[in-house]
Structures are given as C-alpha cells and as structure tokens.
C-alpha cells in the first residue's frame, strides 16, 4: 500500500495525547501510509476560538488547510475529533462567498484551494480499508473484550462530517473487529463524557464519565477504545475521580484505537506509548496474551 496523506497532529498530539500521535504515526508507517505533516501548522483554535468568533476560528483552520494545499496535499488527516470538527466546519463555511471574504480579510491570502480534512478513523476505513488492516495483523487481539467509544463530535454534525452514522457509528467497531478484538455493542458510544467541563465542574465529568464506565463494566469489557484525546483523558485520567465521587472501583484501561491496532500489528508497548496511560493496561493485555 502506498498512500501519501497530509497530517495535522493538533496541539493535543504534541501535548496531552502524545501516545495517540505516536501510535497513529507508527500504525500508518506499518500500513504503508506516508504521513506528511502540514508545514508550519498552527492551532486550529480549539473550543475557545469558535465559541467567541466564527470567522477567527475558520481563519485559523483555513490557514492550515491552505498551507496543506500549497504543499500539494489534497487530503489532511487528523486524529483529534475537535481539530477535525474545526477544520471541516471551516471548509464547509468557506463555501459561502460572503463568509470566505470575511476570512480572507483576516488572513490577507486568497484561500484559493483548501485541502479536505478526514479523521484518521475515516482514512483507516475508507482509504486503507478493513481488508488491508486485517492483512497486517500479526497478533490478533483475540480474547480482548473492547467497548468502542467515539465521543460526541466524531460524527457530528452529520452534514459536515459526512462519515458513518451520527447516532450509531460502526467504523471503530469494524476496525478493531478486523484486528481480532471481541467488540461489544456499546450503547453509549456517542454520549458525552463531560468534555471540557473537567476544568470548572469536575462533578459533571465524574457523573457523565462515571456512567460510561458503569455501562462498559456492566458489559464485562476488558478495555475501552477511544478516538478523542479529551474523552481518553476524562475516562482514563479522571477514572479515579469518578470512582471516588460515585463509590465505584473501576479499573478499565482506556486505549486509543490506534494503540490497539498497533499492538495487533506487532508493534511494541513502547512504540504505541502504553506507558502514558494512567489506568494500568498491563493486567488486561497479559490476560489476553498480548504482552
């Protein structure tokens, strides 16, 4: 497989979720997908930008998409759903000439051509393909019961994202099934984890993430797979807080789906950055014979 694609790590990928970035790069390398970083990429604006000013938010994203296009990249992939949302919404809104003019005024460039954005999940399913993934699996995740948790914005709003089902997505389920895992039908796969409320209102995150953990535990899973740095942080880093607030004793490791894919493809724990996880994944991986 030879595929070259633009890559936008996002600031989480350079900070709180280095293991997501690291495992994504490693898995892509294993799959023969060449990731070319968007040259001189800057922040997409994240939540603060679009809550304050849509034009500013779009301008930040448009700058990155234009840089990618200038570098000859038609498609840019990003692992982070928040970056994805910003980049795609910018692309969507820039189709309106009046809005594009506002953005141009801010950027002082033409924004002639913008690259298209796809989530890493979408690239895996649509560009690489489940068959190709399955063919690369050397250590099937057999015996690992996984709940796939997509988070609330991976596929929303559907008219912008144009991928998978907004209420009942199956992309990650299918990917990890291809990697040999036993994927359980997780009913809360697009529910809110509490998102950024973790800063001002820990109690909300504890409650919302706690429900997700309860439900996953009720299904008897060994692990949860996520595709979003913030979801992963709330479920993993704050699992102790949720336990403390709700009197539960969960110890469910929360992986990025790319980490699990990497393990299935024979990458080492170090290569996929397992040491960065808070809830110790070792026991469950050992039980499943993966370490």
């Amino acid at each position: 497989m030879t595929l070259t694609i633009g890559y936008y790590p996002g600031c989480s990928g350079a900070g709180t979720s280095v293991e997501y970035d690291q495992s994504t790069r490693a898995v892509c390398a294993r799959l023969g997908v060449t990731l070319r970083d968007v040259p001189d990429w800057s922040c997409c604006g994240s939540t603060p930008a679009h809550t304050v000013n849509h034009v500013l938010s779009a301008a930040l994203s448009a700058r990155n998409l234009e840089l990618a296009a200038q570098a000859g990249l038609e498609v840019v992939t990003t692992p982070c759903p928040s970056c994805l949302a910003n980049l795609r919404i910018a692309g969507h809104k820039m189709e309106q000439p009046a809005f594009r003019d506002d953005v141009r005024a801010l950027l002082e460039t033409e924004c002639e051509t913008l690259a298209e954005t796809k989530s890493t999940l979408q690239v895996m399913v649509e560009e690489v393909g489940l068959d190709e993934v399955q063919a690369r699996v050397t250590k099937p995740l057999a015996g690992l019961r996984v709940a796939c948790y997509y988070g609330c914005i991976m596929n929303r709003p559907p008219e912008v994202m144009q991928f998978d089902d907004p209420e009942h997505p199956m992309a990650m389920d299918n990917l990890l099934t291809a990697c040999g895992a036993e994927v359980v039908p997780f009913p809360l796969k697009v529910e809110c984890c509490g998102a950024a409320a973790g800063m001002p209102r820990k109690d909300i995150v504890a409650e919302l993430s706690g429900r997700l953990l309860d439900t996953a535990a009720g299904l008897g899973v060994d692990a949860i797979a996520t595709a979003c740095p913030l979801c992963q942080m709330n479920l993993d880093l704050r699992q102790g807080q949720a336990n403390a607030a709700r009197g539960t004793r969960h110890a469910i490791p929360v992986f990025y789906f790319t980490q699990l894919m990497g393990l299935a493809m024979g990458l080492s724990a170090r290569e996929v950055g397992l040491s960065k996880l808070v809830v110790n994944p070792k026991p469950c991986l050992e039980r499943a014979g993966l370490l």
Binding site: D165, P166, E167, H168, P185, P187
Partner: peptide, 9 residues
C-alpha cells in the same frame, strides 16, 4: 433513521 432510539437494533 432515529438511531438514538435504537430502532432496528
């Protein structure tokens, strides 16, 4: 089409 109601699933 109302995936959130789980109809059909």
């Amino acid at each position: 089409v109302y995936g959130q109601y789980g109809a059909g699933r």
